[in-house]
């Protein structure tokens, strides 16, 4: 188990180093920098002012030097200053993390708590009307883009209740605070729940045909015991994998959801920072997200080992 852990940890560090290189150089490949954008917004280009500004921001330096300044700062916890707001990058990023974390957490919770039970029911009731209905729901979830679903929810809320469930920084009640996150989390989590449900269903169907399930039934185990104790425990591995991957994909979904529900989280902030080519914000934020995603995958790898002892013995 220890060797497995060390190997995964090493792989994680190598991955993060690779990501840092990709982030840094991809950003520089994108045409234009903050200075171009500032002058584009002003509708003119003054070469002298442009050169001064590039020097002031340090983007006239060789790329290797720029990379070294950034990555060494990142490791020290010095994230530099936002080119746009001229405030410390960390000060800009930190308050937004809990907002997105809450949203992502709720979306994942929604996904797992809806997707897994419905997937089990769908598999157990295979071929029934209920199964067909649940499959239609899951297919809809996969087909509906979350921005469209989000706008539909907003439009319906305004038309039916005269209220709009967009982000409220100062909710008056606990319920209002919950609604601020729950509605967008449901919008973004619906697709994820649909995927989880389909994976759970197919995985369960495969497991339910296994000999040991028949043996369990022959021994007189109850349906619940067979389905949830024997079958689900063995069918859950691919589901965990998908949820781990979904956690990473969720960031992409959140960009749109945060925009539609006007939530000041990191995902929308990241898009804005890319638009402005605000390198200190983009690099550090993407790197932080990468750390979270790689760590999540690391945890998933560890969970594999917990759920399936064969992995820790053979890998």
């Amino acid at each position: 188990m220890f060797a497995y852990l060390v190997r995964r940890l090493f792989l994680m560090l190598v991955t993060l180093f690779g990501i840092s290189i990709v982030i840094f150089f991809l950003l520089r490949i994108v045409p234009g920098n903050i200075v171009d954008i500032l002058f584009a917004a002003a509708g003119y280009v003054d070469p002298a002012d442009k050169a001064n500004l590039e020097k002031e921001l340090g983007i006239d330096q060789p790329l290797i030097l720029q990379y070294w300044h950034w990555i060494s700062g990142f490791l020290r916890g010095d994230f530099g200053y936002s080119y746009v707001s001229e405030k410390p990058a960390l000060q800009e990023i930190l308050p937004r993390i809990p907002i997105t974390a809450r949203l992502a957490g709720l979306a994942l919770l929604f996904s797992a708590s809806i997707g897994i039970p419905l997937g089990v029911i769908s598999a157990v009731k295979q071929g029934t009307r209920l199964d067909y209905a649940l499959r239609v729901v899951s297919l809809s979830g996969l087909s509906l883009p979350s921005f469209w679903l989000g706008l539909l929810i907003l439009t319906a809320a305004v038309a039916m209740f005269g209220q709009i469930p967009i982000f409220n920084p100062n909710p008056a009640t606990w319920l209002e605070a919950f609604a601020t996150y729950a509605v967008p989390a449901a919008a973004v989590g619906f697709r994820s729940a649909a995927l989880t449900m389909r994976i759970t269903r197919s995985s369960m169907l495969e497991v339910l045909r296994q000999d040991y399930i028949r043996t369990a039934r022959a021994k007189g185990a109850s349906d619940a015991a067979v389905n949830y104790h024997h079958a689900l425990k063995n069918a859950i591995l691919p589901v965990i994998t998908v949820i781990g991957i979904e956690a990473a994909f969720l960031i992409g979904g959140l960009i749109v959801t945060e925009t539609v529900f006007n939530i000041p989280g990191v995902a929308r902030f990241l898009v804005e920072a890319i638009r402005w080519r605000d390198y200190p914000i983009v690099q550090n934020l993407v790197m932080l997200i990468a750390v979270v995603v790689v760590s999540a995958n690391f945890i998933v790898d560890m969970l594999y080992a917990v759920f399936d002892p064969r992995i820790r013995y053979t890998d």
Binding site: T155, I164, I166, T259, V260, N262
Partner: peptide, 18 residues
């Protein structure tokens, strides 16, 4: 001023009286 770059959301919020 609440910054809402998405025009649809902004207009719906105005209609809802926000």
């Amino acid at each position: 001023y609440t910054i809402i770059p998405n025009r649809s959301t902004a207009i719906l919020a105005f209609v809802a009286g926000k």
